[in-house]
Design a protein around this nucleic acid. Structure first.
Lengths: 197, 197
DNA sequence: CGATGATTTGATACCCCTCAATACCTGTGG
DNA sequence: CCACAGGTATTGAGGGGTATCAAATCATCG
């Protein structure tokens, strides 16, 4: 149990220092949740009641279009948060689905505890401010890539940016994340292999 | 002069309450800057020393690809902040260019004053945390749209989401923001007019 | 092993880009 | 106030990058 929080604390302390007292307080705000592979955390139309920290495992959030195709918004592995923000913050119905790619252990933070924690532990305002600030820069890059790069460049950039995690992902999920089809990824791979011989 | 801050304070007070004392303090952290149409605030390769609040006017941030094409990352008008985050926060060379679409009046906040303000006025941590949190939700939507919608849907969605600002923008800039060519926008418009007759 | 999902491969279609030419605005200076 | 210039928009022809659809092969796991 203790170990699950160590991932969280390490992650927080990259951005803001915590006292032992604060750590005890923080633990009190979270709930555990264990999920099997392919299990849902959130489905479109539900309310997203938690923001979740991935302590172990791998999750994805995604939308489904009219044709039934998934479009992956985010992968979250150890040290990442996942949620449908619009739903979590404003109480809308979720537009995103969230489920697991691997068996996963989560730390759940409810809206109420999120607000409480931010008020009672001001350094957490700082932590989340920095977290979001960094995420914004990441998302900017992704959007720029979506607009400027070819399919091949997108795929190469993904492998380069997330070398570890790309090995834990089937290619159809990478395709979905990049806004491509699995067939296209397959053809790119063949081309890349050829180029190396 | 006073009036320039009122836009800022209104904007902050949508998210967090300010005392008169805090307002006086906040004013001290900012510098003014006036820019002409088409004037640069930041060029690729420079250091982004400020995060800027648009008090009046309209700006854009963008990258330039190998072929010399602009890809617009963000429009910022009255009530928006603009910056190259990666450069502002981490001190990297800026990857973004920022310039004006209209004559603009900015409130500039240096890195030093940004940190000072966040420390001395904790409610501003809250303000920025909420600001970034909301921006993340917006960027998610934009990325989803980039991956799922056709050119026509993207354009219609833009007009629908930003009806006021779209009238202040030439179509080539809207095209650049949406990852399309001006020619495509032109053809879409023709098609839309036809459909309404 | 059977079943289900994932990947590969090929044929075809189409959306949007590219390039090029022309027309249309808008502001500025003579 | 007109003329010109630079930027902006329109239109057409042609091409290319990915998607789509379909089928076969390949993994994986209960």
């Amino acid at each position: 149990m203790e170990q699950l929080f160590s991932t969280l604390f390490e992650h927080i302390e990259e951005k803001a220092q915590l006292t032992d007292k604060e750590k005890v307080l923080i633990k009190g705000f979270f709930k555990f949740k264990k999920l099997r592979r392919r299990q849902y955390l959130l489905q479109e139309g539900d309310m997203c009641k938690y923001i979740s920290f991935v302590s172990q495992g791998l999750m994805k959030s995604y939308t489904i279009d009219d044709k039934g195709t998934e479009h992956i918004n985010l992968f979250a592995w150890e040290g990442w948060w996942i949620s449908d923000f619009a739903s979590f913050i404003f109480g809308n119905e979720a537009k995103l689905n969230i489920d697991t790619v691997e068996n996963t252990i989560l730390l759940l933070l409810s809206r109420e505890n999120y607000e409480k924690m931010l008020t009672e532990i001001p350094v957490m305002e700082r932590y989340f401010r920095i977290l979001y600030q960094n995420s914004l820069a990441t998302k900017d890059n992704r959007l720029i890539s979506a607009h400027t790069h070819t399919a091949e460049e997108k795929y190469a950039l993904f492998l380069d940016t997330y070398p570890a995690i790309s090995q834990r992902l089937p290619q159809n999920l990478i395709a979905s994340y990049l806004g491509l089809t699995p067939e296209t990824i397959s053809r790119i791979k063949r081309k890349m292999v050829k180029a190396n011989t």
